[in-house]
Computed example of a mutant assay.
Amino acid sequence: MNTLKLTPFILMSLCMLSCSDDDDVMALAEVESTTIENLHAPQEGGRGEPISGSFTKFDFETGQITDSDTEWDIAFRGTTIAVNGGTVTGTIDEPLRTSDAGITLVSATFEDITEIPADTSFDQDSHEGFAVPAGSGNGWYNYDFTTNILNPIPGKILLVETTDGKYAKFEILSYYKDAPSDIDPFQDESRYYTFRYAYNPNEGQVTFN
């Protein structure tokens, strides 16, 4: 008799738990996808002189450039990309690393990366150098010395574990102001990044769908 009386209550409880689970799934925020245009990453020096100048810091959570000393994920200066994880490299004017973010460069198309692969190993900056390799052909770009033009290498995608343990992917589309399709290295200003990214704002979620 007691069992029969409790059965509707149990069924109702199970239904409520099921609805609660559905609500949790539906409560996930949407993946954020956008393109950043003309992120200026100037530097001083070069041509035999020490390179210096502040890095331009970017935060995926806000989708904005930031002046914060702590709330940033990646930073740009010239062709160099820093990540807010690890230690300083010894480069002049670089920001302090205050978090445990990581970054890795993979060969794929932006669309094909629908999630962070389970075996992904994220690298951090260190005294040995930046996690994103520097130099033409070594990381994200090629530089043609005959034309003085720098182009992103097609199919090079950067995956990021952010300062708060979330995930992003981004692809650099251009290094010149307004992303010209026909680059004139003597007219088009360089050190202006255009890149597209996808960022999953949900903790523990590695997908970009």
Results as ranks from 00 to 15, higher is better:
108 A>N: 13
5 K>C: 09
13 S>R: 10
147 T>G: 02
134 A>R: 11
28 L>A: 09
203 E>V: 15
141 Y>C: 08
8 P>G: 07
146 T>C: 06
159 L>N: 04
169 K>H: 04
182 D>L: 12
32 E>T: 11
153 I>S: 05
75 A>Y: 01
202 N>A: 09
108 A>K: 12
106 V>P: 02
55 F>W: 08
187 Q>A: 15
206 V>F: 13
179 A>R: 02
136 S>M: 04
55 F>E: 00
148 N>F: 15
121 S>P: 02
91 T>V: 14
7 T>N: 15
55 F>A: 00
31 V>N: 05
52 S>I: 01
93 D>Y: 02
24 D>C: 10
177 K>E: 14
38 N>K: 05
158 L>N: 01
142 N>V: 08
10 I>T: 09
88 V>P: 03
154 P>N: 11
41 A>D: 00
157 I>F: 05
36 I>K: 04
52 S>A: 14
7 T>E: 14
136 S>G: 07
122 F>A: 03
1 M>Y: 08
54 S>D: 11
31 V>M: 06
8 P>K: 06
111 E>N: 12
179 A>H: 02
20 S>T: 13
203 E>Q: 14
14 L>F: 15
101 A>Y: 05
186 F>M: 15
90 G>E: 04
200 N>V: 04
16 M>L: 14
163 T>V: 12
152 P>E: 07
143 Y>S: 10
155 G>A: 09
205 Q>I: 13
65 I>L: 12
156 K>E: 11
132 V>R: 00
164 D>E: 13
18 S>L: 15
76 F>T: 01
19 C>N: 15
189 E>M: 11
109 T>E: 15
42 P>F: 01
108 A>R: 10
115 E>M: 13
117 P>I: 09
160 V>W: 04
23 D>S: 14
96 L>E: 14
191 R>F: 15
67 D>A: 10
57 K>S: 03
195 F>G: 01
4 L>N: 13
131 A>Q: 03
183 I>C: 05
116 I>G: 02
192 Y>G: 01
132 V>H: 01
7 T>C: 13
58 F>Y: 14
68 S>K: 05
25 V>I: 11
9 F>T: 14
87 T>P: 04
37 E>I: 11
59 D>V: 09
141 Y>K: 09
54 S>T: 09
82 A>P: 00
181 S>H: 13
41 A>W: 00
153 I>G: 03
117 P>H: 07
95 P>F: 02
51 I>D: 00
30 E>A: 13
6 L>Q: 13
176 Y>A: 06
52 S>V: 01
133 P>Y: 06
197 Y>H: 03
97 R>L: 08
14 L>K: 11
115 E>V: 08
103 I>F: 07
13 S>C: 14
138 N>G: 07
65 I>M: 12
103 I>H: 03
9 F>K: 14
202 N>M: 07
7 T>L: 14
134 A>I: 12
157 I>V: 12
